[in-house]
Amino acid sequence: MATTMITTLDRSSRAAARGLSDISIRNLFIIPTILFLIVFNIFPLIYSLGYSFTDFRASTNAPANFIGLQNYRDLLNDPYVWSNFAITAKYVIISVAGQLLVGFGVAMLLNRDIPLKGLLTTLLLLPMMLSMAVVGLFWKLLYDPSFGIINYALGLGTFEWLSDPNMALYAVALTDIWMWSPFVMLLSLAGLSAVPKHLYEAAAIDRAGPFYTFFRITLPLVAPILMIAVIFRTMEAFKTFDLAYILTSQPTAELISIRLYKMAFQEWQTGRSCAMAYIVLIMVLAITNIYVKYLNKVKER
């Protein structure tokens, strides 16, 4: 099948004159990419799977001893790790739900004829285009208890967003919502503008009110694309590291990836952190799978 997709090389082309066949040209382009992937992605992936069954520490010269599933057993019995998972779950739910609400809401507002719509949309997309680290650094300034503009604007005095253990996680989630709502907005806007106008006219003729129209026409028709936004954002939120790491060091905001980082590069428990990385990977895969199943169901309608 795949070979039939390749168009034959023009006999008179320069490549042909140099004696390059279709297949050699294909290889020329594809093999480096595949090599790159193998060296930097697939090899570490498999190698770390091996490490996850050992007590290897990268900071010592001691050889790795095979200890079977001991790392997995320890991790899954560690209440500390479980609390990290709970924090992460809370963070994912707050941040993805917030992004959906804000992003979809803004998209609804933008989905009409307003002046400067293009410019407005582009400006609203800016947060998404910034680097995570930069966003983290300047939100740290915004949240600052003594001179931060947020406290000044809201009249909160010296409220400590990032050092308050009860607030830190929400503050990080809020920043994430600010940064990634535009992404949901962009996808929602595409979905909303794809809903044919005549369906709204038909609904108006059928005497449907605005809420009925929204829940029965708009939402079901935008649902598949919204689902894609949810999948992307859930995966990303699950893996959040830089934003949370820069913003706060509160243990109540210690996401699983931060725990992983500390375990691997501060405590040098290489073998155990590999096991943890695998647990996270399996969880993300499982969640994504559930979403994709649901997405397919939505699409079928």
Binding site: P196, H198, L199, E201, A202, I205, D206, I217
Partner: peptide, 10 residues
């Protein structure tokens, strides 16, 4: 009630 050219079925 109205019937549209494009049918406009949901």
């Amino acid at each position: 009630a109205m019937v549209f050219q494009s049918f406009s079925l949901y």
